[in-house]
Write a protein that binds this DNA or RNA. Structure first.
Lengths: 206, 206
DNA sequence: CATAGTGATGACACGTCATGTCGTCAACGA
DNA sequence: TCGTTGACGACATGACGTGTCATCACTATG
């Protein structure tokens, strides 16, 4: 038997999320969180760098996965194909089936400026990881940077659309639809052939 | 004669930048800044919401300008044309001729996690403003969101490339080049005009 | 000239965040 | 058995950020 109850980090995370939903992020103090989890303030900062991080630690592994997936994707795929495949493979499974809890988390994040900032930093870390992957594929620095930014834009936009959607559409579909729409905007087909193109691609993908 | 020396905000900004360059952002305290500017701590927070904001307040007007420019651009232009014209008109003049001071500022921002976060938040505010403009142009919500994200990606990437460039190339040129490269990545011409390597690999794979 | 209002600043107090340091105690291995 | 490791508690500290009130030049109005 251990001297302390196990799972300190997870208890802190759960306690923090509950309190954030109940009182709002800014109104909750770290001592309140640790009191509910049965720990001390100092222990909170041993597990999380700051009060915000408790809402983002769960996705710490994503950047590394992105780099490897982009770098190892079959040669011959276009950048957009690599992006869509990578996001559907790595990201979509982290969304499907978790819509309710992710909606709660998003509401908390959007309610606080500081949390929005941290959210954007996490997205930027994913993009930086993507740059490394595309560089390993042989893309020049500029193309790799832009491709990684596009990936970040697609996952971000798709995530919001998926969370706003009330059907059970799988995240991978939304990702493909968003990528197609982005191609349309860049090539100036915005709104013209959009609907038809998207459904065809979505059906092909499913 | 005034009771206090005029230009309190500008004095604070200059003092802060000097100290940040000299000691690093984290090592500088607000009382140090205000002491150099001949003011009190409380006055600093009357002019800037927090310690980071002193490095970003100068671009507070950009989002509003972006919204109006995008919304008022001549009808018939494609989204990418609107983006490039808007950025060249509104943003490029804020760069040309200021390369040295902007390089100093970038170095400070990149040296601190918190400043990077704030930087990303400012970019996101520009993107949000862009969405409003494209919506006013008649684009659907998804296309407007993606177009605004593309604009943010282009300005961000172009700014870094311009700062890394040692020639006197005007910012507008870099913006156009970056936009063209982005179109190339999306339509899979990445490297065609740049290296030629990737295209060969793609053709071999396909 | 007198008076009241406005607005930027100084002065002070306070709560929270974040970190450094040291002590405690269980678990583990030689 | 004994030393090491690692998670946590306890305490102290400094900086951040905010609320509140007083001060004093400037301005408008009569």
């Amino acid at each position: 038997m251990s001297r302390w109850e196990p799972g300190a980090a997870e208890r802190l995370r759960a306690a923090a999320l509950d309190l954030f939903v109940e009182h709002g992020f800014a109104a909750v103090t770290v001592p309140q969180i640790t009191a509910r989890a049965g720990l001390t303030t100092r222990t909170f900062f041993r597990h999380f760098a700051d009060k915000r991080e408790v809402l983002f630690a769960h996705e710490a592994a994503l950047p590394g996965l992105m780099t490897r997936f982009f770098a190892d994707a079959p040669p011959g795929l276009t950048p957009m194909e690599v992006i869509v495949e990578g996001l559907c493979t790595l990201v979509a499974p982290r969304f499907d089936g978790l819509k309710d809890s992710l909606r709660v988390r998003r509401q908390v994040v959007l309610s606080d400026e500081g949390l929005r900032e941290r959210d954007l930093r996490k997205r930027a870390l994913i993009a930086e990881a993507g740059v490394a992957g595309f560089r390993d594929r042989g893309l020049d620095e500029l193309s790799a940077t832009l491709a990684a930014q596009l990936a970040a834009t697609i996952i971000d936009t798709a995530a919001h659309r998926w969370l706003d959607d009330d059907t059970d559409r799988p995240m991978a579909d939304v990702i493909r639809e968003t990528a197609a729409a982005l191609t349309g905007v860049v090539t100036d087909q915005a709104g013209t052939a959009l609907t038809g193109v998207v459904t065809d691609q979505a059906k092909a993908g499913a």
